[in-house]
């Protein structure tokens, strides 16, 4: 356990100056900022909208971009970046000749990748809420203060996080095994496109394919309106695709350890 904590500490220490770390912060900041600017400039068109609709539009604009393409690609990038630090510096050999169990080194690295995804999605939720409220303050005509969707946004992003777990485990293992950027990136990209197609085509078995999960999560979750009552929304976090994503993630994570243990360090 001590080895695991030390490894995790070291992951923080060595990656705080890398793009992988800063991307987790900059991506949500830039994306929400851009949508914020868009709303700010076009605010006069929305002055008559009720608060709930404003929030839907604002968060929907961000979520729409995030869910389908950006989230899978971001996860692929994070999985790559935490491993490429070692590939580039040729440090696998030193990591695996430390008096620390290989299991600790491996799981600390995985947990760090997981942390970056949580950090990024958490910031998405935070910035969406923050910039939404800021819009309400700067443009009093926009009735953002009429409605609150903090809890719902957190649920949405939590579901997105769970739905991305399958991709994270698979991409983490691919990036660990291959030093080459193009291989895991290429495979990830093709799978993401395939996932988007599956999810949009409503293929009946799409929930088995982890790369389709984020898109499916968004589709099933985009606030349902029931009957005439617009204020009732249903978010079902633990759907079939989310379960599949979690299970695949756990299996690949454990299998990955056995592969790493048997693998020769170049």
């Amino acid at each position: 356990m001590k080895g695991f904590i030390l490894s995790l500490q070291s992951e923080f220490y060595k990656s705080r100056k890398t793009l992988g770390f800063w991307a987790a912060i900059l991506l949500p900041l830039i994306l929400t900022l851009l949508v914020f600017i868009g709303f700010y400039v076009k605010s006069e068109k929305m002055t008559n909208m009720p608060g709930i609709l404003l929030w839907m539009r604002f968060s929907g604009a961000i979520l729409g971009i995030m869910g389908s393409l950006l989230l899978p690609m971001f996860v692929i990038f994070v999985a790559y970046s935490v491993n490429s630090v070692e590939h580039k510096a040729d440090t696998w050999k030193t990591l695996f000749s430390l008096p620390i169990a290989k299991w600790s080194v491996y799981s600390a690295k995985y947990l760090y990748a997981l942390f970056l995804v949580i950090l990024s999605l958490g910031l998405f939720a935070l910035f969406t809420i923050g910039f939404g409220n800021l819009l309400g303050l700067l443009k009093p005509g926009l009735k953002f203060s009429e409605y609150h969707m903090e809890v719902m946004l957190l649920q949405v992003y939590f579901k997105l996080f769970l739905s991305a777990l399958g991709i994270l485990s698979i991409q983490f293992l691919l990036s660990l095994l291959w030093a080459d950027f193009l291989k895991p990136m290429g495979i990830g990209f093709v799978c993401t496109i395939a996932g988007v197609i599956m999810a949009t085509a409503n293929w009946e078995y799409d929930f088995w394919f982890p790369y389709a999960s984020p898109m499916m999560a968004l589709k099933t979750m985009m606030p349902h309106t029931k009957g005439q009552n617009n204020s009732q929304m249903v978010i079902d976090i633990f759907t079939k695709d989310v379960f599949v994503s979690i299970v695949i993630s756990a299996i690949v994570f454990i299998a990955g350890y056995y592969i790493v243990q048997k693998k020769s360090v170049k």
Partner: peptide, 8 residues
């Protein structure tokens, strides 16, 4: 060759 993090 020594294993060194170039960005540190």
């Amino acid at each position: 060759q020594p294993a060194i993090y170039a960005h540190l």
